[in-house]
Design a protein around this nucleic acid. Structure first.
Length: 242
DNA sequence: CGCCAGGTTGTTG
DNA sequence: CAACAACATGGC
């Protein structure tokens, strides 16, 4: 076996199945209850409630460049001090909101980001968060991207995990992992990289949800030496420690 | 103790 | 358009 070079590139579906076999179902996105993040299969299959969509929206902003553990604390703080609704959050002073989400880091900016999003839900969506689902995907995405504090990854996370629009989330892990396997596509722009996934894979929200979550699980796995040694992708990985 | 998390925005060349 | 700084806490 000429492991390391010469092993041809696996398909995206191959990689998905390998990661799924190794890490199991991820059941993203979690809902926080009593200070604990719940990854339940139930949440991954049925339609989201408006309350869940809002929590996912907020969580997607709070987790920007931040460990989920910190976001968990921030969401718990929010839930114990405010009723989690767009109007409640909007009428809460931004500096006090910032204090509640302090554990999530960048708290001044994130408070401002939350307000911008809540303002959009209250006004453009008339307070009805489900209304975004009535737009075509491209239009809903453009709306989100126009908001201060929402970039492509956050927009796609909200659309995919909240509304179950079939849009693929690209993040640093996704790029890093595919780059280590020799995919030149990993160097493309966010939009091009996403297009590559979406034209290669069937348009299936559940597949996209699990796949992105698996990339994150794998990305964390790659960080430890032990993880690297026992890696399901080692036959193809050019960075593998052997 | 240093590094870095489930990024985005604003500034500069 | 690419490169870079700023934004900040907490876990490992």
């Amino acid at each position: 076996m000429d492991r390391g070079h010469g092993m041809s590139l696996p398909s995206l579906l191959d990689i998905y199945n390998i990661l799924l076999d190794f890490h199991g179902e991820q059941n993203w996105w979690p809902i926080v209850k009593n200070g604990v993040s719940l990854y339940l299969p139930e949440y991954a299959t049925r339609e989201r409630t408006p309350e869940e969509i809002l929590e996912i929206w907020i969580g997607a902003i709070l987790t920007q460049n931040t460990a989920w553990k910190n976001v968990e604390k921030a969401i718990t703080n929010l839930k114990t001090h405010i009723a989690l609704s767009p109007s409640e959050i909007l009428h809460y002073p931004q500096n006090e909101l910032a204090e509640l989400i302090r554990p999530a880091g960048y708290y001044t900016q994130k408070a401002k980001k939350l307000h911008a999003s809540m303002h959009f839900i209250e006004n453009t969506l008339s307070g009805n968060i489900l209304r975004l689902k009535t737009f075509p995907l491209a239009q809903a995405r453009t709306h989100l991207l126009s908001l201060w504090g929402i970039g492509p990854e956050t927009a796609d996370s909200i659309l995919l995990y909240g509304y179950r629009f079939p849009t693929f989330v690209i993040d640093a892990y996704t790029r890093r992992i595919l780059l280590s396997l020799g995919f030149s596509e990993a160097a493309l722009s966010y939009h091009e990289f996403q297009a590559y996934f979406q034209k290669t894979l069937p348009s299936d929200a559940h597949l996209y949800e699990e796949y992105h979550a698996l990339f994150v699980a794998q990305g964390k796995h790659c960080k430890t030496k032990e993880g690297c040694i026992h890696c399901p992708l080692s036959p193809w990985c050019t960075t593998h420690k052997r």
